[in-house]
Design a binder for these strands. Structure first.
Lengths: 327, 327
DNA sequence: TATGCCAAGTGAAACGTTACACTACAGAGC
DNA sequence: GCTCTGTAGTGTAACGTTTCACTTGGCATA
């Protein structure tokens, strides 16, 4: 693989000058510049980022630490992060902790050894990996705020309120809640946004906490199938909603004919399942892109206080909600 | 950030010795070894991989180049690759080309600059990015074989045969084919496996090539809704199958009552959509892990001829196929 | 006693790049 | 003719690691 020195030798000029030329710095006549670039092209020169990193202390590399790529929120996020980062010349190094704290810790340790310039992190829970203690590069959080960190997330409470308004508008007043897991901030915000919006008009018939991956515990199944207990089931995310719909269908209850259901996230599949799901869309791609932007600002040293970016969400009405039958 | 020299200075010993100790090489008395390790711990030493890379020429880094993370095949693959690589001490650098050849080319260029030790690549199509010309590190292909490369994939032809057998067993003989994209090897293998299995018993009523992301062109919609043209629609993957089911439902045709449908891949959602999809399961996680293993063998220099690893697949029968109605 | 060998450790060079201080020369201004 | 300034370019020292050839002393063997 050709180095600066090879080019310098070929053109008969100093290494410094070649470095200047290939990095677009001044101090070279146009004619010489052309010769150097020609030689670089000829020899197939690719700058060695590792060497550059050692000299400059910056690797042009970003860590992306996620809990679980098989949750469909994250691939879309990862795609946006990777593409935005790449167009800024940064390579994204992926860590998927498989929802295991040790995975998170190992991943951070590896990223630190590689001296990534920053980490975009969707934390697993409230704990901080011990390996992270003396990490002195910027960190941007996704979705889960913490004191002292930049964070980028959606306005989940707003999503809850939009759903509440939609429930009222379509005539539902007895609500079942399949909320996300207890203790997860984003689940809490969704739930509280809904419940707090119209406390006098909406009656919460029952509420059950469910994992975001959509597996329904027996009590959820019982609640779902108790006829008349609720006319609308508001779910913590789309996976839960899809599971609920299937659970209902298996027991002879049709959505939205017998019961209405809403999701949250607007993952791709909401548009492909039957019935198509009414849900809350959050701009996942924009969140990923923004996280990278915030990171770039941090990296460029324009340091402010930690900043919180919150994106609006939107109601997407499809086929899984219709006015309740009289009875 | 502490360096080998800092430790050497603290312990009063040479840099070489510290390097030997932290890398577990011999040539140090147990007692000295202990002192060095204590100092390393004390100072929070993390080896600088960039510096090591420059000296050794190896970065302990792997590229993973994918067409589209929002296709649910890939997150599962990426997760397996990342976890297997990490447990071998390798960091995975992600490129998502968003199905654009330029993205693939840019990604490879970036990976080359970073001198990754190898690339695991699921090629977009038949073309090779120009930037890849003088890449001299090992490449392991996923899913799409090419002459001269290692490849890890499923036995797609076997999947096709299993589907054909299932079609016969459930009494279907007039088949519609929504095959994957033209020119994509894995799509061709699935299709050929099916078509070649029982050429005398199964009649291909129509065949249309469709993108793997499941968007249906108008002619596909026409074919699907032409009543009686086929009793079973065999789709190139699950996304196509799910789209087909919804397309049918929107036009008043119910699956499996009016038409049966099969998918391919057994992505997670096949179990959540209505009806649950009969499909072919491939061991995605095992494929990802194996790809890393093959890569490690290549990297360790035990070079053989290019090798092809093929995993068995299995039929998963669910609700989207039932015997055809008489008529 | 001389010889060789081993364990324990050292010093310096190199990997490819960038940053810094420097030189050489041409032209402008007085 | 002299200094001043700017342009075009050079040489060298790092960055943190590994590798290689080397030293030193002790101990076993002939």
């Amino acid at each position: 693989m050709a180095t600066l020195r090879d080019i310098a030798h070929a053109v008969g000029v100093s290494v410094t000058t070649v470095s200047n030329v290939v990095n677009g710095r001044p101090n070279a006549s146009p004619e010489l510049r052309a010769r150097v670039l020609a030689a670089a092209e000829e020899l197939g020169y690719r700058p060695n980022r590792a060497a550059r990193a050692m000299r400059t202390g910056r690797t042009s590399t970003l860590g992306l630490v996620l809990p679980d790529l098989t949750n469909p929120f994250f691939p879309e996020l990862a795609q946006a992060v990777e593409n935005t980062a790449r167009s800024a010349g940064l390579l994204v190094c992926l860590i998927d902790s498989q929802s295991r704290p040790e995975g998170e810790a190992d991943g951070f340790a590896l990223l630190m050894q590689h001296r990534v310039d920053g980490v975009i992190w969707c934390p697993l829970g409230a704990t901080t990996p011990p390996t992270l203690k003396d990490f002195d590069k910027p960190i941007v959080l996704i979705d889960r705020p913490r004191a002292g960190y930049d964070v980028v997330q959606s306005d989940y409470a707003m999503g809850g309120r939009l759903l509440a308004a939609h429930a009222l508008a379509t005539g539902h007043t007895r609500i079942g809640l399949l909320s996300g897991p207890h203790g997860v901030e984003s689940a809490r915000q969704r739930r509280d946004g809904f419940v707090g919006a119209h406390p006098d008009s909406l009656e919460i018939a029952w509420e059950i906490n469910v994992d975001f991956d959509g597996t329904l515990p027996p009590e959820a199944v019982t609640a779902l199938t108790r006829r008349r207990s609720a006319t609308l089931v508001v779910c913590g995310n789309d996976l839960i909603a899809i599971s609920a719909i299937r659970c209902l269908a298996e027991r002879g209850l049709r959505v939205p004919h017998d019961v209405s259901v809403t999701g949250f996230d607007n993952i791709r599949w909401t548009d492909l399942v039957t019935p198509r799901l009414t849900t809350i869309a959050q701009p996942i791609g924009a969140i990923g892109a923004k996280a990278v932007e915030v990171m770039l600002e941090r990296m460029s040293g324009t340091a402010h206080v930690s900043r919180r970016t919150i994106f609006d969400v939107a109601l997407v009405t499809r086929d899984s909600v219709r006015p309740p039958r009289r009875g």
